[in-house]
Amino acid sequence: MTAAKPAAFGASDKLTFLLSLVPFLMDHDRVSVTAVADHFGVAPERVRDAVNLIAMSGVPGETRQYLHGDLFDIQWDEFETNDNIVLTHLVAIDDSPRFSAREAAALIAGLQYLSALPENGDRDAIATLMAKLTRSSTGAPSQLAVSHTDADVAISVIQAAVRAGTQVEFDYLNARGTDEHRCVDPLRIQSVDSDWYLRGWCHLREAMRTFRLDRMSNLRSTDVPADSHDDGVVLPDTLFQGSADDLTVTIELPAAALELLADYGPVPHGPAAAEGLSRAEVRVSHFHGLKRLVSGLAGVVTVVDPGAARQTVADWAAAGAARYEAAAQGEPAAGAPN
């Protein structure tokens, strides 16, 4: 497993943690800081900070002075000497908080997405769980829904191979159009929205590689044990890594359309000559991916530089258009430019 990167932890998260920690501690007479940290998946230091804060907090009380009896209390000796938490006095809260409408919605939509996968095929169990979440939230969960899609059969094959620790093999057509037979130690099956990827050790390239499931043909599992990659091999969080050989391409597009290219990490490069357009730079490993990208964004993105990239795109689109123009030979191409 990769080490989870610590996400920004704001006041809302801290408050949620405080409100969640109290009922947990109430249910555990004596619990170590590390056990709490493990259970909540946080650093022990965060648990200690929270316990310190809880132990000094409470309600104003009748005197409005936050007197001793109005505050939470813990066994300080246990805490300071043995790193154990023993809650001895409770104030105001003693139960877990409900989910917010959006929190429940996020989990429900996540469940809908998972329900498309083979091992979560028990629709009734998922429906029961969604109903529980709805009842556990303060407001009606926000309207967020994920459509059910039939999962690629490849997912089950690879999943079984990951569990069994065996290799898979398949023919793979890469973005440049080269078809090669691959034997791979499957490490993880990963998805981004509706796109599925296999990440694993490629015996042909002798390196970690990411493969799109929809570019695989003739996938089959084998009896060959996969090598162990427990040591030294870390799967980066990002699916694809840039390389020093990447080419820089200058494009022109409406500034507002930059978001359409977010996956390519465009770097804004000032306004273009034409009104309303701006320039940006993107990095690509070769022009073959670029020509597909730009042709799929007709009228929005134009390649400016280098000329070779421009030409690759023009040739690609021209070859596509030529097939229709040849078919319509003799007929006037209505509305066609030039």
Partner: peptide, 19 residues
Amino acid sequence: SLSAESRRALTKLNSLGID
């Protein structure tokens, strides 16, 4: 934003103490 929402939902879920 939904990753922050679901992280908070998990924190609340963890308060139930179920492994």
